[in-house]
Design a protein around this nucleic acid. Structure first.
Lengths: 117, 117
DNA sequence: CAGTATCCAACACGATACTG
DNA sequence: CAGTATCGTGTTGGATACTG
């Protein structure tokens, strides 16, 4: 709400975290990184996510310019989601984190609520 | 809560996000990366964070082996927080994300609630 | 100074039902 | 199939007061 006071960090990271924030967006990024995916398939991949949350996250990523939504006006209705160039660059920036987490997998507390892996 | 079903992603990222999850942990990482810092200083740096949340996050990072807490039993009481080697590696893995967010700073929706920058 | 203890508010998430 | 609408809930964060 307020501007920076004595904070002078660059923290573009905050922006990034704001984009991939929540509980499912990073998983979403992962699924989308594989190529165009349909809504139903994502739901099945990310078993446990509700339609509402999935739709919300998809929308937010879309609003951020990370995801492209291609609607095929046909019967039955079909929608395909894919990463934009910006989305691809984000998923690339996310990789080191992925690697780090994977490398230190057992050095970290093995919580049970870390979502599907 | 439940185990993986048809999800087979590596997603070490989930682990990482679980560690730097919340709203302030990444900022915290940033502040800590500069070297040993005292509680009060962090509060001032991360203007807006409450003591409760700061203490919680600090504790979680400590539990994850990311942060080292050095207590000086003297008067007045003094405590210094610093990154462990693991913490340093994490902050390094976080950098690309930082760079990405910074580079696409204005390509992204300029929300107001993204915390101090 | 460095926390801990409470209480409260906001929001993200989850489950279900319904629509184009 | 691909959502939207609604409701209830759990977790996270914020504000304040109090303690070692």
């Amino acid at each position: 709400m307020q501007a920076a006071s004595d904070v002078d960090q660059t923290c573009g990271m905050s922006i990034a975290i704001d984009v991939v924030g929540g509980k499912w967006k990073m998983h979403l990024m992962w699924v989308l990184a594989e190529g165009p995916v349909r809504f139903g398939r994502i739901r099945r991949k990310l078993d446990g996510v509700s339609e509402k949350v999935l739709a919300e996250n998809l929308r937010q990523l879309e609003a951020s310019g990370i995801v492209h939504r291609e609607l095929y006006a046909e019967v039955p209705p079909r929608v395909e989601y894919s990463l934009t160039p910006l989305g691809v660059s984000l998923s690339e920036a996310l990789e080191p984190l992925e690697v780090w987490g994977d490398a230190n997998r057992d050095a970290l507390a093995p919580r049970s609520g870390v979502a599907a892996c």
